[in-house]
């Protein structure tokens, strides 16, 4: 597998202006990790979950507000708080 790519997946074909995008990558010692990322709302409730790509990347289409990202990988769970805005994409790098 090639190394981790910085940032989230390619945004070609995505209508960024109308979406509220939270994306990024999950790495361990700079290498991509295969695992899952969950998106939790302000109340800590599950909203969505995606597997990371082969290059460790993930993306959510959320709504403006404060969210928590929870990376689940073999042997570790890491939380990150993020604030998302419509028309902009929020990039989050999660090291586990």
């Amino acid at each position: 597998m090639c190394g981790a790519k910085a940032g989230g997946p390619d945004l070609a074909g995505v209508d960024v202006a109308s979406e509220t995008i939270i994306q990024g990558s999950v790495t361990r010692d700079g290498e991509p990790v295969n695992g899952y990322v969950r998106l939790l709302d302000e109340g800590g409730e599950f909203t969505a979950e995606v597997p990371t790509s082969a290059t460790g990347q993930f993306r959510f289409f959320a709504a403006p507000g404060t969210w928590t990202l929870r990376a689940l990988v073999p042997g570790a769970t890491v939380d990150r708080k993020v604030v998302a805005q419509q028309g902009a994409f929020t990039e989050v790098a999660i090291a586990v």
């Binding site: 209508d15 709302d41 909203t47 969505a48 289409f61």
Partner: peptide, 19 residues
């Protein structure tokens, strides 16, 4: 569905585009 879909804030689970 998630609370945000229930309330009307989101139309789909957040790993899908919202249109």
């Amino acid at each position: 569905r998630s609370p945000d879909e229930f309330s009307g804030k989101l139309l789909a689970p957040a790993h899908l585009p919202q249109e």
